Amino acid sequence: MDHLTLNNGVEMPALGLGVFQTPPEETRAAVQAALEAGYRHIDTAAAYGNEREVGEAIAGSGVDRSEVFIETKIWISDYGYDETLHGFEKSAAKLGVDQIDLLILHQALPSEFEKTLDAYRALETLLEQGKVRAIGVSNFMVDHLTTLLDKASVAPAVNQIEVHPYFQQREVQALGAKRGILTQAWSPIGGITFYREGEHTSTLQDPTIVAIAEAHSKSPAQVMLRWHLQQGRSVIPKSTKAHRIAENFDVFDFELTADELAAIDALDTGKRGGPEPTDITLENFGRPIPEA
């Protein structure tokens, strides 16, 4: 498996299992299947409501805790300095761990950016205390990153954003690369685009991707994950099906050519599948994160 070195020297497996929208009752089995397939990186979030099941699956897997890279996220309802410190305690207790490998802020709060900055300051404190090994952000756009970098003592190690062939956010990626911030792709195979504007527009059926997949005797999903990995991104594909989880991990035995990479690059539509970052407010998206 490939590893990526974060800007503070911590090594992170490039490919992980995402558990966004995975019901808690299905999460244990999905994480167990991933660990059996060779995954050593699991991405969850306080807002997903399945941190406890992720922790239970890791604890019961027989894989040593030190071998599994655990990533989770603080939700906007827990922003603020003291609130975010407590958000860490809630997540760590649910996961059943003393230390989290990568802790990130789930969204920017553009209308209350001071709260976002206070939350990030709490992440810096947790990093200094050794309670987390690396810190980062998610869904931060260029202006959010620029403001944060202006104020922060520690640059984020990761910015987890929507990236797939149909939406590539090159400006955000370029700023990250310039400042040593790794881009981590959520929805890396474009799952969020599968039904868009009333049409079936699945990346899995895209003629360009299908042709490349056939040339390598791989699936379209494997080709898209390979595209990310060869361009230096971290990926966290999500599935609850054991055979898909294993298939998504089987991407380290082939390489795309420069022409194939360029052909996938050319598919960018500029259309976001997830919510607009400017729409994220406590009024619209705030919800309490339960205690452990």
Rank of each mutant, 00 (worst) to 15 (best):
I236H: 08
T147G: 07
I245C: 04
V68E: 07
H216N: 15
R287N: 02
A185N: 09
D150N: 05
S219R: 11
D143M: 12
R196Q: 15
E128A: 15
T240G: 04
L109E: 06
R170K: 10
S61R: 01
G55F: 02
I76C: 01
W227T: 14
I289E: 07
F88V: 09
G49E: 03
A157T: 07
N284D: 01
E114G: 11
L204E: 11
E171M: 06
E26Q: 13
R226T: 14
L229D: 07
K94W: 12
G130D: 04
P188K: 05
V63N: 05
T208M: 08
A29D: 05
G87R: 08
I264G: 04
P288F: 01
T208V: 15
S77M: 00
L229A: 13
A119D: 00
K115E: 06
L102D: 06
E214Q: 15
S91Y: 11
D118E: 14
D101S: 11
G60R: 11
Y120S: 03
T281I: 00
A213F: 13
T183L: 09
V210K: 15
I212M: 14
K238Q: 09
V31W: 13
R28T: 14
E199S: 10
D143W: 13
G270T: 02
H3V: 08
Q32T: 15
L117F: 12
D250C: 04
S66P: 03
Q21S: 11
A59V: 02
D279H: 14
D64V: 08
E26K: 09
G49N: 00
R287V: 02
A92Y: 10
P165A: 03
P110F: 00
A292E: 02
V68A: 04
A215N: 15
A174L: 07
R272T: 06
T278L: 09
Y79R: 11
H106N: 04
K238A: 07
T281Y: 02
H216V: 14
G136R: 09
Q21H: 12
F20P: 03
A266E: 04
A134I: 06
A108R: 09
